[in-house]
Amino acid sequence: MDGDKHDEKQKTKAPADTESADGKKIRIKVRGLTGEEVYFSMKAVTPMKKLFDAYCKKNGLDQSSVRFTLDGERIGDEATAKELDLQDGDLIEVMHYQVGGM
């Protein structure tokens, strides 16, 4: 389901790729812990830390208690959308930390 959406987005995005300069903003979808979705628009060269900070601030979360994942891989907070090949409408999932002992 998500994959179809991504494919559509990429198709429609293809002609606009030529003008994806550093100043252009892209929209990134963030899915929270309970499944609600929020859109962030940010520059492609902005480090992801700002998105994380903004999201945690909005939702009152401690940033050390959540992980931001893209396709199951954790995103470093220094990475930019350009480095991550993020397209318009790509999904970042927020995961809760896991601790296990017994």
Binding site: E37, M42, K43, K50
Partner: peptide
Amino acid sequence: DIEMEPPVSPA
């Protein structure tokens, strides 16, 4: 340089 849009309901 980062803006949050109002939350949308899940699909």
